[in-house]
Amino acid sequence: MSDEIRITAEPLDDQRCRFDVSRPVYPSGVRRFGSAADAQGSPLAEAIFAVAGVTEIIVSERTVTVAKQTAAPWPVVGKQVGAAIRAGLSGGAPPVAPEVRRTDPAQDDTLYERVAEIFATRVNPMVAQHGGRVDLIDVQDSTVLLRLAGGCQGCGMADVTLRQGIEALLRDSVPEVAAIVDITDHAAGTDPYFAASKK
């Protein structure tokens, strides 16, 4: 196997960019880092937080999603993040620490159960009408990580469903949820319910 680490960057918007990595980054699930302090002990996350402007990192399997609050464009920041990912993967230590340093893991577990219940009883029956599905990936530091699938993946109205539907519903039902992060690869969606056209 080649030692070369290949990384593909795909900006999701001005603030977020997904990096697909040719090596496993965090095979055991999904983990979110909301601050540099949170990243202590995870070399990959520490290295990425050293890049100016980075505010959030989500790692899962072979994917690293990075959020920034800086005017520097992704082609510039992305190169630095790519170098940081390589540095984080090159050391002897696991790139992401196995234990999750949550501020309140018990609360996250409780939130997970409540959100999962809502997804099962209210969200998924509704999106199923359009052939869609919403997978709850995790709740970390009160942030819900989810992935859209089926007719929702790549759908032209996915952002509306996510923000005006799912987020609003969670805001009403589980006000302790701080934020929702969609880690869907929408470009890979091949069966969107609404496909965008030229105008």
Partner: peptide, 18 residues
Amino acid sequence: TVASDHSNVFGAEQPAGL
């Protein structure tokens, strides 16, 4: 509030937003 030409599946749950 987002108005669209097709009902959103959450329209009944979130009438102020959809």
